[in-house]
Design a binder for these strands. Structure first.
Lengths: 200, 200
DNA sequence: CCCCCTCTTGGTTGATCATTCAATCAAGAG
DNA sequence: CTCTTGATTGAATGATCAACCAAGAGGGGG
């Protein structure tokens, strides 16, 4: 097995374990049994558990386009619908996990109370990658939205809606909480589009 | 010292520690050194660490009115302004903690990946207590908002905004992310009020 | 053939974890 | 004075944790 494969296998396993159990509750032993490696091998590629986390966050950051956006936007061209298609993908994840789904980045962002700068920057970079994708859609929507609209702010608001909706759906174990958050955001966009028409 | 005091002291210390470091990262030893108790004393009142968590969540649930709403709404009568006054209180907490603030309930909700039913119900009860307070304000706003408005849904959306805003402000270490979320919600309310006027 | 480097093996270290327990204490009841 | 109760003490337990390390396997180039 090529070394790169081993590294990638560790990251892949860690992505799943951190998502399932969180960072602190995932032990090195968990990681070893999942990857069928010995501790020395793992520590050969990653000097510490923290470095595994860094690898995971880099993988998420670099995979946004391929792993998240591309599947979500399959067959969806309308920019505003793409935003809701992305939210629909999260809905699917919530349903598939019986409402135990948590956004891997959001969960880590709240779990790590004293993250070192590198980790914090990577968490932020993940959020920025996500919101930037939304900003592009808002720009593509052009005149359908008000001229003076704060694209960045609205994009962050979409992320806020997703994270808050996921958190509540998970806590109550009901998708309805996520659905209501999305419905409110839908109303928001409809009102924005309406106000853009009036001005035009 | 009366026994009730010791129990309350443990809960009080645990509230702060869980908020600062999270549940898993707070050790019994942390709790003991903070309360100046011996392990036996703690285990006399709480059979397990989990039971301390239950005590903490009950304290939050029972303290919403006195500890959260009352201070936030001091001198604010307008129902819609009360909603934003509550958000302003969270803003204050964010600033006071140099943008490390995390909602204690939200953080626990995302940190605990396999909470037993009792804990999960208490987390949900805390969210419900919060949103119910918002629902009351929305009802008090009466005709200023659209007749067909989903009060529960909008109240949950306010919570969503708070939680998402807190998460992003904390991750980026900038209040501006919280401010933008609130600004978006403000726009939302303004558009709702405008549409209520048109119909009337 | 040997040297060198990458990678693997798996036992080991010492710290920290939640929890337990027998013993002790103070204070009140009868 | 005796007995009971509730609270407290603090050492001890065994599990689990992240991390370390000496020894060796495997392979490619000289």
């Amino acid at each position: 097995m090529a070394p790169k494969d081993t590294r990638a296998r560790i990251v892949h396993a860690a992505m799943e374990l951190f998502w399932l159990k969180g960072f602190n509750s995932t032990s090195i032993a968990d990681l070893l049994s999942r990857t069928q490696l010995n501790s020395g091998s793992l520590y050969h590629f990653f000097p510490s558990k923290q470095d595994v986390l860094v690898g995971v966050l880099e993988a998420y950051r670099d995979g946004i386009e391929e792993m998240l956006l591309k599947p979500a936007w399959e067959g969806v061209d309308d920019p505003i619908e793409r935003i809701f298609a992305l939210l629909a993908l999260y809905r699917r994840l919530i349903v598939e996990t019986d409402c135990t789904y948590g956004c891997p980045i959001g969960s880590l962002a709240l779990e790590l109370h004293e993250p070192d700068p590198q980790v914090r920057d990577l968490l932020a970079a993940n959020f920025v990658g996500w919101t930037n994708a939304i900003v592009r859609q808002l720009e593509a929507a052009g005149a359908r939205l008000p001229r003076a609209l704060d694209h960045e702010g609205l994009a962050q608001f979409v992320l806020t809606t997703m994270e808050g909706g996921v958190m509540q759906a998970r806590t109550h174990r009901e998708v309805a909480y996520f659905d209501r958050a999305v419905a409110m955001l839908r109303t928001h966009f409809q009102m924005l589009e309406a106000s853009a028409k009036v001005v035009a």
